[in-house]
């Protein structure tokens, strides 16, 4: 049972790392940052997986994302100076696998579906789904950025001198 969980965590980290490398390449991240982005994404995503486990902390996705982003931010502030890059160059691509993409585009879809229904019950149902998806995606992204930026605030000097 425990070995299954460990394998799942490692698998989660591995695929998050692959996703981070791919999305880093879209953002023209320097090649020397790929490995660190992958490492940060693996650490953050697998931490979020652990925090959301039904047998574990059973955390909601919003605080779990914020805590994982904080961990990513801390690691980014410590590792970014090694490759002479600002921490944002490392943690922004690492956060991308955790971006709530499905919540974001479902927000728009449910908005359009709401407009297509004139009956009160159906309208309220789809409106609830629109608001739920919209608020969830907004707060996940906000929580992630606040969590990842906190270490930059705490270690200001280290963050803004990373490239020298």
């Amino acid at each position: 049972m425990l070995s299954d969980i460990v394998i799942n965590i490692l698998e989660d980290g591995l695929f998050a790392a692959l996703a981070a490398i791919g999305f880093s390449s879209i953002s023209n991240t320097p090649r020397r940052a790929y490995l660190i982005c992958a490492l940060l994404a693996a650490a953050g995503h697998s931490l979020r997986y652990v925090l959301m486990l039904p047998d574990g902390a059973v955390m909601h996705i919003i605080p779990a994302s914020a805590l994982s982003a904080f961990a990513i931010g801390m690691l980014a502030v410590l590792l970014a100076p090694r490759i002479k890059c600002p921490p944002e160059v490392c943690f922004f691509p690492a956060l991308l696998p955790m971006i709530p993409g499905m919540y974001a585009y479902r927000t728009i879809q449910y908005l359009l579906t709401t407009l297509c229904h004139t009956g009160e019950e159906a309208f309220q149902h789809y409106f609830y789904l629109f608001v739920y998806n919209g608020l969830t995606s907004t707060f996940i992204i906000s929580g992630m950025v606040v969590g990842a930026t906190l270490p930059v605030f705490l270690f200001k000097k280290l963050s803004f001198t990373a490239t020298c």
Partner: peptide, 8 residues
């Protein structure tokens, strides 16, 4: 376009 390489 977004470029972290340029940013760095």
């Amino acid at each position: 376009g977004i470029s972290f390489n340029l940013n760095a």
